[in-house]
Design a protein around this nucleic acid. Structure first.
Ligand SMILES: [Zn+2]
Ligand SMILES: [Zn+2]
Ligand SMILES: [Zn+2]
Ligand SMILES: [Zn+2]
Lengths: 132, 132
DNA sequence: CTTATAAATGTTATATTATTACATACTGTT
DNA sequence: AACAGTATGTAATAATATAACATTTATAAG
């Protein structure tokens, strides 16, 4: 069950924008797009992004400094994320593969480190770009 | 067998610095540290970093915008990287686990995407920080 | 050795991404 | 009403990264 988070005004504006965008959005592109809604400063964007990431409504694609709406209905928090990224068209999608997530969530090694979170980014060519 | 790359002057200066540093280094910290060696501009640092990443001598820790020397003697190129990152002390180490790398290198899903590269970052608390 | 080519360097300016600091307002609880 | 926690507004600035252009050095072929 997904906990309902009542998004604040700015959080909602920014989440809605990211959610309906086709791909990942960058912070300043978000800023540009929400200026007509009264959000004027980078910090307002970054604060909303931080919160949305924290509650798992969006994820950050670290290698791209961009943000994407969670595509798994069950990502309550951003603790276990995996993405596939096309290096040609920059299309990004969230991988939802229970075997993979189980494997990684249970991963441990000899370092004695306790892992509580991971982020995995796969790179390659998507179907479309491969056939070009 | 590791191909020998003859590093250029700037590449060598910057690699040596990263290699002997304890943890990941950020670009502008590198810049600061090599100014006495005649490297004066960010671009000189970024160019060397790009090349060193390309040939696998260093890796970028995407979530930290920082660079670390490859700790696997066999990473010829930065195609398959995994790191463990302590969220308390920011200690980073490269994970060298053949099962994990095999699992991820062979990963494929129904998207039809051909994966040629991945980067995985695990987060948690290291042994030291756990026991505090 | 000369010529051609690719790789690396030097330099200035600028673009992009993200945070600090401080003041104010809203929301829910006691 | 008083309090605590969360969110907002605003300005300034820090941190990260790239564009553009001129020059030099290394590598390989002829
Ligand atoms: Zn998700
Ligand atoms: Zn593509
Ligand atoms: Zn490596
Ligand atoms: Zn630690």
């Amino acid at each position: 069950m997904q906990k309902e988070h009542n998004l604040s005004k700015n959080q909602k504006i920014i989440f809605d924008l990211i959610d309906k965008s086709r791909g990942p959005m960058k912070a300043y592109s978000i800023l540009f797009n929400v200026q007509k809604k009264g959000i004027k400063a980078p910090l307002q964007v970054y604060r909303a992004l931080d919160k949305l990431v924290e509650i798992g409504k969006i994820h950050k694609i670290e290698s791209r400094n961009a943000f994407i709406a969670c595509q798994n209905s069950n990502c309550q928090v951003s603790k276990a994320t995996a993405f596939s990224i096309c290096e040609s068209c920059e299309n990004v999608s969230e991988i939802s593969n229970s075997k993979l997530s189980k494997y990684l969530s249970n991963f441990s090694d000899s370092s004695g480190m306790k892992y509580s979170k991971y982020n995995l980014e796969f790179f390659g060519l998507c179907k479309k770009c491969k056939s070009k």
